[in-house]
Amino acid sequence: MDKFLKRSVAKRVFSFELNEATYKVESDEKLVQILLPTGTLCSRVFIVGVLLDREETRPDSDFWKIRVSDPTGVFRGFVGKFQPDALENLLKIDPPEIVAIVSKVRIFEGTTSNLVTLRPEVIVPVERDVMNYWILETAEQTLKRIKDMKKGESELVEMAWKIYNPDLSYYESKIRDAVSAILKVEKEEEVSEEEIEEETADISESFEEDLELEIPDIDEFEFEEEEIDLNDILG
């Protein structure tokens, strides 16, 4: 009796997986759903990571580009006045800072590849243990999806195999690294906040370099939402 007014569940997905998602499932309602490489549909995500920076796309546009890292890479997103709560909070935050984000997922279609971005509804600074739990929970739920991929029983799983043909052992190694990092931090009795921030910044930088190679010039992307100016995206 709790399903009458449907809301999309916020999926737990690491950035390395979300950034590989390119396939949008058409729907008659206005809902944008993205097929993840591990065979599930995703229109909303819950993530907890480090807000690395925020940058106004153009002066006084009130449209901000953000980058948020997790142990596997970087999420990119945009916050504008259409999400007033998120915007208000974003402007109060002094990055780098750990934040929880509830977000719609958007996919911009280019001619040679697609770009996944976040449209946060909620941004709120949270504590480190919240981030650690998110990493563990996301690892668990991704492993569960991987298990279903191996079983290969559902239509979505079949589709994901056909479209992405994911290297599941690579996925597992990414998850192993992310989870092991928590044990490592736990072992080192005193790790200063700064060191950790540097570490995450390093990871995201190297990921950023990878991205530059893969993502074509932004002019190739067409945007479906009127509130987005082409120049805002990577400008």
Binding site: Y133, L136, E140, I175, V179, I182, L183
Partner: peptide, 10 residues
């Protein structure tokens, strides 16, 4: 328990 849960997942 962070450590226990991490180990369980690994």
């Amino acid at each position: 328990d962070e450590v226990e849960k991490a180990k369980e997942i690994l």
